[in-house]
């Protein structure tokens, strides 16, 4: 006769959830992106890393760097995670992201950046303020320079406070190209920046916006007024737009 205690002990050995191997081993993909191919590394909770292939170099070197930096094994992914390919074509909500390795502040900065609409730009200082730390402008720049998931979190839409486009992970030319694909008139923005204009208001509504805000772009030339700062716009009787919140 079998010992019921020993039998019950053996029954305590529940098998591992089928997800354990997926939890431990990440998957890599090479997929088309807006400026050529991108490499992506995906864990069971979402996309962990994305890099333009032209910037990251050879696939093997990219993967070896990932293994070293993150200490995680990575194998070819069986399929692209839901939403990744449409997001790289500029459509949809985007795939789930796994940003668990980042600090809470970095995650907040990326969450704020992810809410900047297509075809619009915001200054670093705006991101800092929206993330709840208005003085942490440089820290925002650092977080975005290390964005593990560019394109999916559109750090190319964050520009310098003086209107200059600023730097980008894979170079300024990529930033210009990405913004132009989204319909941003980069030459026009640069002209405004050179003229010291940071905000644009309409004298019919009395509302002042960032130049790329969809409200600002509807203002006709006759009613358009540029301002170097929000203070100056307020002094002139304008209130900040509720959508772009300058």
């Amino acid at each position: 006769m079998t010992d019921p205690v020993l039998a019950a002990l053996r029954d305590l050995a529940e098998p591992a959830p089928t997800s354990l191997a997926e939890r431990v081993v990440d998957g890599w993909l090479r997929v088309p992106g807006p400026l050529g191919e991108v490499y992506a590394v995906v864990g069971d909770r979402g996309v962990r890393l994305l890099r333009p292939a032209a910037f990251a170099g050879e696939l093997d070197a990219f993967l070896e760097d990932y293994r070293t930096r993150h200490g995680r094994p990575v194998r070819p992914a069986p399929r692209a995670p839901r939403g990744l390919l449409p997001a790289l074509r500029g459509r949809g909500e985007g795939p789930a992201l796994d940003l668990g390795d980042l600090t809470p502040f970095a995650r907040e900065v990326l969450a704020v950046t992810a809410r900047i609409p297509v075809g619009q730009t915001r200054p670093y200082g705006w991101v800092a303020r929206e993330a709840g730390r208005p003085k942490a402008v440089r820290a925002v720049g650092t977080v975005l320079a290390r964005n593990p998931v560019p394109l999916l979190v559109p750090c190319h839409r964050v520009v310098r406070g003086d209107g200059d486009l600023g730097q980008y992970l894979s170079g300024r030319a990529d930033k210009v190209a990405l913004l132009e694909r989204e319909g941003v008139e980069v030459a026009h923005l640069e002209a405004l920046a050179a003229a010291g204009t940071r905000l644009v208001g309409s004298d019919t509504t009395g509302v002042v916006c960032f130049p790329t805000c969809h409200h600002a772009r509807r203002i006709t030339a006759a009613h358009r007024h540029g301002f170097p700062s929000l203070e100056r716009a307020r002094d002139a009787g304008y209130r900040p737009c509720r959508d772009c919140r300058p």
């Binding site: 050995a13 591992a16 959830p17 354990l20 081993v25």
Partner: peptide, 23 residues
Amino acid sequence: DLDAGFEAVVRTHGDVVHAVARR
């Protein structure tokens, strides 16, 4: 191939490691 081999290790020994982790 360390990574491919390691995935096989997880699939082979995952149950016993998880069962001990559970206890």
